[in-house]
């Protein structure tokens, strides 16, 4: 075991160019993915759809533990499996988790991949069921969740789609993440700054312009950071979250100035 570090440097993490069409990942990519891979769920507060069943507030910490430890472990394991595949056959550059895990540790690896995919998909499928039900009230949550799962499974069959997963995860994380910042600021900060939280509900209005503008402007600024400054999409979640939160706070200060619409509307 003493020469593991040498073998790791020479056979596993030996650097070099990425595969054609793929981004070269550095330590920073892995670190950002470890924290922000599921930005839409954790930073975007989509986790709350599941955490509403939590019996203790500390259960929220499982997101941090899962993200940090789990994703780092996943990256380390994935790189080892891929290095093993290349060592056995350098022409095999496809990244298919199931066959790679099966080749390394047999049926146990295959079971782990299936269970990992299933447990990861479950909360997201539940969320999608809730979302569809909100769009189509009166529909069966069971049937609509099953339908969403069926569509996702169908999509997963096509490698061309699955190979774009990292970019897709970065994109939808960036799109949904600002809402998490808005919820955070609304819940924890607005009243400290003398403004109303849950403003739209209390004012009886359908759209909170401060929230809508903060979301769109944050996305636009993320777009500028991506296109003009060249910040890769994987790194946008953190600055985007801060931008969205700050914008919502500032816009709410203006939008709700002196009570805003609340002065003329019943506050419940």
């Amino acid at each position: 075991m003493s020469d593991f570090w040498r073998v790791a440097q020479e056979r596993i993490w030996k650097g070099g160019d990425p595969l054609v069409g793929q981004t070269k990942f550095t330590f920073w990519h892995v670190m950002f993915f470890a924290w922000f891979c599921n930005a839409a769920m954790h930073m975007g507060m989509a986790d709350m759809s599941v955490f509403r069943y939590a019996k203790k507030w500390q259960y929220g910490l499982s997101s941090a533990a899962g993200m940090y430890v789990g994703h780092f472990m996943a990256w380390i394991a994935a790189s080892m499996l891929f290095a093993l595949q290349l060592a056995r056959d350098p022409s095999r550059t496809e990244v298919a988790p199931g066959p790679m895990a099966y080749a390394a540790v047999g049926i146990a690896g295959l079971l782990c991949v299936i269970v990992a995919g299933w447990t990861t998909a479950n909360p997201t499928l539940y969320r999608s069921g809730l979302a569809f039900q909100a769009i189509f009230p009166g529909s069966s949550r069971f049937a609509i969740t099953l339908l969403a799962g069926g569509i996702a499974t169908l999509g997963a069959i096509f490698p061309a789609l699955v190979m774009k997963l990292l970019g897709f995860v970065g994109l939808y994380g960036t799109i949904l993440m600002p809402m998490g910042a808005i919820i955070f600021v609304d819940f924890y900060l607005l009243e400290r700054f003398g403004r109303q939280s849950d403003y739209a509900e209390k004012a009886g209005i359908r759209i909170n312009l401060a929230a809508g503008l903060a979301w769109l402007l944050a996305l636009a600024l993320c777009g500028v950071l991506n296109r003009a400054v060249g910040v890769q999409i994987y790194f946008l979640a953190l600055p985007g979250w801060v931008i969205a939160g700050t914008l919502y706070l500032v816009l709410s200060m203006v939008y709700q100035k002196n009570g805003g619409n609340l002065a003329a509307s019943p506050i419940r």
């Binding site: 075991m1 593991f4 540790v105 047999g106 049926i107 146990a108 690896g109 079971l111 782990c112």
Partner: peptide, 23 residues
């Protein structure tokens, strides 16, 4: 078992069987 395999103390078959039992 994977540490034992790295050290050369266990065969591929035993590695896979032990990990399956553990799982």
């Amino acid at each position: 078992p994977s540490c034992l395999k790295y050290a050369g103390n266990v065969s591929d078959e035993w590695l896979k069987a032990l990990m399956l039992i553990g799982t």
